[in-house]
């Protein structure tokens, strides 16, 4: 059994027929559970999608530009073209995801009509609404959203996100921000648990208020010791060891954005990140995975402060 806490049984995205139901929290969150221990890879073409699938990716994320290219190009970044999404859907058997701008529900409806398997309401694209995210309970297909703290993660779950990922700092090849974000979430979960264990319900209510999250979700997290949905790492993961580090911090799986197809050895790197994500408990296996890539071929990346902090784009 997985958590369906916070489910809205009368949500418009939930479609009942005489003998079945689609778009339930169980079916939407369940799909994210199937991606656990795996790697979702950003791709910009059918050819890259095939390389990703062949390497053992659990899903691909279709974009017009990799996050690192979005940085270089500047300007407004929008959802991927309808054509490339269709090409990728035809090319692979694994789930196909695509990103829409934060708060841009019309882009999300376009992606829904394209019948992608999951939508990423993503800060990598230029936010469309400075105040509000999409109300995701309106959709039959699941959404994934980024978060830098427990409060932010639970706000997204309240809005109907079926999966959470760290924001990290996309397109930098620097894993530091992703580490910071998952640790912040973990610390707050531990804090909530300790309040519950002490029987301090008022403390829990105050914590919920100060993090800006609904109390019932904070209580559920305090009870279970984890988010009610799957939590992946994203934003700056470039090497097999980066993936292993994020898994060991308790992440359920990995998104790799620019790290694979902005490297000089995408096919080998994709296989290596898949191996390290699956076998992160086995240091020898992670070493083998690191041996499959050439560090001189890792994306150059940005070590210091990037010009654009994507993680701070849009409502939090």
């Amino acid at each position: 059994m997985i958590s369906t806490h916070g489910n809205r049984p009368d949500a418009p995205g939930l479609v009942r027929t005489a003998d079945s139901v689609r778009g339930s929290a169980l079916v939407k969150r369940g799909m994210a559970h199937m991606l656990k221990g795996g790697v979702v890879m950003d791709v910009t073409s059918a050819e890259q999608a095939r390389i990703a699938e062949e390497a053992g990716a659990v899903a691909v994320m279709v974009l017009d530009k990799l996050p690192s290219e979005v940085r270089r190009a500047g300007g407004v970044a929008r959802t991927a073209g309808v054509g490339v999404i269709e090409e990728v859907k035809k090319a692979v058997t694994i789930p196909v995801m695509a990103k829409c701008r934060i708060g841009h529900w019309a882009e999300a409806r376009v992606l829904e009509q394209s019948d992608v398997d999951m939508i990423d309401e993503s800060e990598v694209l230029t936010p469309a609404d400075p105040k509000a995210h999409i109300w995701k309970w309106d959709y039959t297909i699941p959404f994934v959203c980024g978060a830098r703290s427990l409060g932010e993660a639970l706000r997204r779950v309240e809005e109907g996100a079926s999966m959470i990922r760290t924001k990290g700092e996309p397109g930098t090849g620097n894993v530091a921000e992703a580490i910071t974000h998952v640790k912040a979430v973990n610390d707050m979960i531990r804090h909530a648990r300790s309040l519950r264990d002490a029987g301090d319900m008022q403390g829990l209510a105050l914590a919920a208020r100060s993090m800006g999250a609904p109390l019932h979700l904070v209580e559920e997290v305090a009870r279970s010791g984890r988010l009610p949905v799957v939590n992946f790492a994203a934003g700056g993961i470039a090497t097999p060891a980066d993936a292993a580090q994020m898994m060991s911090l308790g992440c359920d799986g990995i998104f790799v954005g620019s790290g694979i197809f902005d490297s000089s050895d995408p096919a080998a790197r994709a296989r290596a990140v898949v191996l390290a994500t699956s076998s992160w408990r086995d240091h020898a296996a992670v070493r083998r995975a690191q041996g499959m890539v050439d560090e001189r071929g890792s994306m150059g990346g940005i070590g210091g402060e990037p010009d654009l902090r994507m993680q701070e784009q849009g409502p939090q």
């Binding site: 003998d19 079945s20 139901v21 689609r22 778009g23 339930s24 169980l26 079916v27 369940g30 799909m31 789930p95 196909v96 829904e112 019948d115 992608v116 398997d117 999951m118 039959t140 297909i141 699941p142």
Partner: peptide
């Protein structure tokens, strides 16, 4: 695809399970 994923009642009489929520 995922939009068509569903829950439905199924039966596995053969192994003594009459009603089961299939996800």
């Amino acid at each position: 695809r995922q939009s068509q994923s569903f829950e439905a009642a199924i039966s596995m009489e053969e192994i003594g399970i009459k009603r089961y929520n299939g996800v």
